[in-house]
Write a protein that binds this DNA or RNA. Structure first.
Lengths: 183, 183
DNA sequence: CGCCGAGTTGAACTGAATCAAGAAACGTGG
DNA sequence: CCACGTTTCTTGATTCAGTTCAACTCGGCG
């Protein structure tokens, strides 16, 4: 259960603390790990499965993010702030997760400086991903966005319904279909 | 020189370390604080002035961010990762800055756990701002984006040339002009 | 078998970009 | 303090990428 190793090496003492707040568990397809309007106190390492992060804009779902095996998913807008999150997290497949109770380990920040580092690295990674997404959307046409996704996450197109992909790319499902049809 | 207080309270010892790596300075209008392709080792607290963060997409400038008095500006994509940054930072007015040499204080992370926290909070704030920006762009029309900016940062429109505003809102300057002309 | 969700295709429409031309404001040196 | 060039902003005409609405196909499954 050393899935955090690739983020930052932890000393034994810190590792023990973290492990005491981790729970391995299964989640069913369509299960919601988090709902908008709640405070998020956990993050999840995905051992198996795909997660989708989305929100509502005028009762239309907008997909903000996908997370695959080996990635961590959470509502970062809430986790580190205590604010109510705007996001839903939904599993798109039957999944296996390691869920970390962040609110528990957060109390130990002062005693365990490595935890601050862990948090910092976690959010830095997410910042960089979000930064990429902004650039993806701001300076590319619908077709370019599709092709970039194809390069960067080809597995996405095998595993995720196209309406979610379309919404992630910020294009309509019809347009996505037409782009794909070009081959 | 306690501009970091609003981010997180620091103990005296940490405060002293930070203060030793801060330099107050002036910057002229159009001065570049940072260039793309370099590693960013500083962040700047803006006492007076406005900064613009931008990058190039096919030799066209795209404005990613503005920072006003009381805000901190940096190339976050590089500061916490050591990667080469994609961004330029330009002052839009004659300015007064407190520039923090982050690479110096970073070496002291293990001795000064509060610094990790400072870094974490800094990047969390930026994450949240970026998150807002994604939503701004993804689910709003050009006119809605303009009106939201008008609400959230009315001073922007007084102080920043409209072509930069347009690029920040991801619309053409002509469209922005037409939207403004509606009143 | 017939329904249902997922994906495709077509036709009409539209928000915003682009191209082009000017007008206004700005600042810099004589 | 004025004149001239540059930058900033506006306005008009045209074009286009992508949306919307609607109908249709296909594959799975109770």
């Amino acid at each position: 259960m050393n899935f955090l190793d690739h983020l930052t090496p932890l000393d034994e003492r810190t590792k023990n603390l973290v492990e005491r707040s981790v729970r391995k568990r299964k989640a069913k397809k369509r299960e919601l790990l988090q709902q908008a309007g709640t405070v998020c106190k956990q993050f999840h390492f995905i051992e198996k499965g795909v997660a989708r992060v989305y929100y509502y804009k005028d009762d239309k779902e907008v997909t903000a993010w996908f997370a695959f095996e080996g990635m961590i998913v959470s509502c970062i807008d809430s986790l580190f702030t205590g604010n109510l999150t705007n996001y839903y997290i939904e599993m798109l497949e039957d999944s296996v997760l390691y869920t970390v109770q962040y609110d528990i380990i957060e109390k130990s920040f002062l005693d365990y400086p490595m935890l601050e580092r862990l948090g910092r690295i976690l959010i830095t990674d997410n910042y960089l991903l979000l930064d990429q997404r902004v650039r993806l959307i701001v300076s590319h046409t619908a077709e370019e966005r599709y092709n970039l996704l194809l390069q960067q996450a080809p597995q996405a197109l095998q595993r995720i319904p196209l309406n979610y992909i379309a919404s992630y790319l910020n294009i309509s499902q019809e347009t996505l279909s037409r782009i794909r049809g070009k081959y």
